[in-house]
Amino acid sequence: MSEYRWPIEKLNDILQPMRETDLIVIGSRPSQGKTTLMLNMAYEFTRKGMRTAYATVDRSRDNLEERLLQRHRYSEDLLKDGEDEYFAMRSRYREKLRSIPLFFLDLREWGETIDKVAYAIDDLKCFFRYDICFVDYLQLIREREGELKWFKELATFLQMPIVIASQLKRTVMNNPGNLPQEKDFHDFEEINACADTIIMLHRERSYDDNAPKKELRVIVSRDRGKPVNRETVLHFDWERATLMEEEQESIAR
């Protein structure tokens, strides 16, 4: 069975390599960094040579591309040279972004029920031949009964890791330090039964104005199907929606 190192090095310190049939669930409360982390992971997988799909039932392709384009500091610099140069550079970066094997799948065009989402990911894989798929996010899929089982079976059938975001319940607010726990997942029993890896995100700054602004706490409660207790801290430039450790000089082809 093929294995893949995580595209963010600090995650390799707390997680075993991803396997080709794995279902990975990333959960947090709103505005904690799920989409930002998954976009960075998808982009870095592509830079490392993996054909990567980012499926959404929430955002348009243009919206996701715009978030990735924020990682380049052309905006503030080029405005000094006039709007024509500014928009020309934006256009060039967008063309470069569309030349790499990162495929944004707007599943709203297919339908938002679990069977149609799964069918679209399966069908489009034949065309785009991607090696890994991100899904953003679970609670927007309608008729969701048994949805995690669908995704686990899909990962096994396609021999492809699937990373899916899930929004946590407000019960997080009742936990010590507002730290997320597995019980805060919607349908957490099914997630425990189906997910190979469970990751939770926490931005302390959301609850405490004096907390470090750029930190994202990554908590792993399950890995390779077994309970664990591991965590690390990533540092993000939230305005640019990018990891601070990364070099952002150009988009890799």
Rank of each mutant, 00 (worst) to 15 (best):
D58E: 15
R61W: 04
R29G: 02
R61A: 10
D58W: 05
P30R: 00
N40F: 06
P30V: 07
V57W: 03
E44T: 02
E65F: 11
M50V: 06
E65G: 08
L69S: 07
L69K: 05
D62N: 10
M38P: 07
T36Q: 10
A42W: 05
Y43R: 12
L39H: 11
R47Y: 03
T46L: 01
R67M: 14
T46Y: 01
L68N: 06
A42L: 05
L64W: 04
M50E: 10
A55Y: 04
F45S: 05
A55H: 06
L39M: 13
Y54A: 01
S28I: 10
S28W: 01
M41T: 03
S28K: 02
L69Q: 04
R47G: 01
L37M: 12
M50I: 12
T52Y: 03
A55I: 06
R47N: 11
E65D: 05
T56N: 12
R29E: 02
E66V: 00
T56F: 11
N63V: 12
L39F: 12
Q70C: 10
T52F: 00
L64C: 06
L39Y: 13
V57N: 11
A55L: 08
D62W: 07
K48V: 00
N40D: 12
P30T: 01
K48R: 13
E44F: 07
K48E: 06
N63P: 00
D62H: 13
K48F: 00
S60Y: 11
Q32H: 15
T46M: 04
V57M: 13
E65M: 13
P30W: 00
G49A: 09
L37C: 14
Y54L: 02
D62T: 14
E44M: 10
S60R: 14
T35C: 06
L37T: 08
K34V: 14
Q32A: 14
R67A: 07
R61Y: 10
R29Q: 06
E44V: 00
L68P: 02
F45D: 07
F45P: 03
T36I: 15
N63L: 08
R59C: 15
M41D: 02
L69I: 09
G33C: 09
F45R: 01
Y43A: 10
D58V: 13
S28L: 04
M41E: 03
D58Y: 04
R29K: 08
R67Y: 10
Y43T: 11
R67L: 09
